[in-house]
Amino acid sequence: MNHAIDRIGEVTETWTSVAQLMADTRWVLTMRLLGLSGAWSMPEGESQTMIGEKIPAFTEAALSGTFAMMSGGSLDRVFRESLEPISSKARANRERLFGRGPLVFGRTVAWN
């Protein structure tokens, strides 16, 4: 019985991580599109940053998942380990961009 409960907890944790990644990704995409259109305050060089961050994050995700699999981890653990580098990058981007705030008539609006 405890095994079934533990298994339910693992699956729930995995899909909660997926849902959080989806939400963070949507926010980052929205703020970057608004930034490229001039409606959101963006840091200098953000267009280069958003391209350059992909390969390291996905490489780290592949390695993390591979190491988890090689150590005998469950499928859920392998999936979570693979998601973590991408999720942490998306979360950091969301927090960083959200703190900058929108632009109104070319000026950043106090967001906090």
Rank of each mutant, 00 (worst) to 15 (best):
A92L: 15
S88V: 05
N2R: 00
T66A: 10
P56C: 03
A4F: 02
P56N: 07
F58V: 04
D24L: 09
T14F: 03
A90H: 08
I86F: 10
F105H: 02
T108A: 03
S88I: 05
E46C: 11
P85Q: 01
I86D: 00
V78N: 08
G73C: 05
F58K: 03
V11T: 15
S82E: 08
L63Y: 05
T14R: 06
F58M: 05
G65E: 01
M1Y: 00
A57R: 03
E81Y: 01
A23P: 09
A19L: 13
V78W: 05
E95F: 07
R80L: 10
G9E: 13
V78F: 07
S87P: 09
R94K: 14
S87H: 11
A68W: 01
M31A: 12
M1K: 04
N112Q: 10
N93T: 11
P43C: 14
G35P: 08
V78G: 09
I55K: 10
R80E: 11
L36N: 11
V28F: 00
A19Q: 15
V28N: 01
L29Q: 09
P56H: 01
S88R: 06
L103R: 01
M1N: 00
A4G: 00
V11N: 13
L103C: 04
V28G: 01
G106N: 02
T59C: 06
T108V: 08
T66N: 10
M22R: 14
F67D: 05
